[in-house]
């Protein structure tokens, strides 16, 4: 059993290493003093982190990305969750087609769709607006959110809800008290994926975003094609990684302390 544990730990460790190895390269490169994405780093420095904080343009673009991603996440998890519930718990006519419809945006090369979307948007006089940008992002994130929540709902026994109702709970209350808490993990996963996909979208945003809504990835790519990677973006990437890990540790510790 001990050997088994060791083999398992090594295997899991290797998978995790595979997942994050490129991120480690990115973090190390962010501390390189040079102007290029080099690896291994040749001279350590904090200059790009300082430059990131000093750049009003980068600060503004990260803030915009957070705003857009938050709105897109709330809408796609809300609508996607509702649709997933309808698909799993009801047997609506044309169930398979309805699911395929909501998933369809996953199956097109986004750049081609984005150009068509921009034409429709521009024709409706909505070119360059925040509304158009959010709408475009929701189309990308809604299928992801819907599919993840759908998978979670299929593993939640509807009998639980039925039991709650037989004990006198209203349908809404029964859902909120039984199914929703059980689906919390799936909803959180859907929200995390939606947020990150929206936060990092460049293909659609490049076309649809107006000048007032240049997001962080759009700014990153705009420079790439002429000059290459701005090391400031490496520093921002490293800081995003830091925020996520610190956030995960904090949420792990916080409820427990409260519980004591």
């Amino acid at each position: 059993m001990k050997i088994g544990t060791f083999v398992r730990a090594t295997g899991i460790g290797l998978i995790l290493l595979f997942a994050v190895a490129p991120i480690l390269v990115l973090i190390l490169a962010a501390f390189d003093e040079g102007r290029f994405f080099r690896f291994p780093p040749r001279g350590l420095s904090m200059r790009w982190f300082i430059a990131a904080f000093e750049s009003a343009e980068y600060r503004a673009s990260v803030t915009r990305s957070v705003v857009v991603a938050s709105l897109a996440t709330v809408i796609s998890v809300g609508l996607g969750g509702l649709a997933a519930l309808g698909l799993v718990r009801g047997r609506p006519p044309g169930q398979a087609y309805l699911e395929a419809l909501i998933l369809a945006p996953l199956a097109l090369p986004l750049v081609v769709w984005a150009i068509a979307f921009l034409q429709v948007l521009s024709y409706s006089g909505l070119g360059g607006t925040l509304f158009g940008l959010i709408l475009a992002h929701v189309i990308i994130t809604l299928p992801i959110a819907m599919r993840v929540i759908l998978a979670t709902f299929t593993r939640i026994d509807p009998d639980l809800e039925a039991a709650a109702r037989s004990l006198g709970a209203t349908p809404v209350r029964a859902f909120l008290r039984t199914t929703l808490p059980l689906a919390r993990g799936g909803i959180a996963g859907a929200a995390a994926l939606s947020f990150l996909v929206s936060f990092n979208d460049v293909v659609v945003s490049t076309f649809v975003a107006g000048a007032g809504w240049v997001t962080f990835p759009v700014r990153l790519y705009a420079q790439l094609r002429g000059e290459g990677i701005d090391p400031i973006t490496l520093a921002i990437g490293a800081m995003i990684v830091g925020v996520i890990i610190v956030g995960a540790i904090a949420t792990e510790l916080w409820p427990r302390r409260r519980g004591r």
Partner: peptide, 19 residues
């Protein structure tokens, strides 16, 4: 789990260049 999410957190480009 947060670490598993990291490849998505920095966009496609930076991790790909790291790779």
């Amino acid at each position: 789990t947060a670490i598993v999410l990291l490849p998505l957190a920095c966009g496609a480009l930076l991790p790909t260049l790291g790779l």
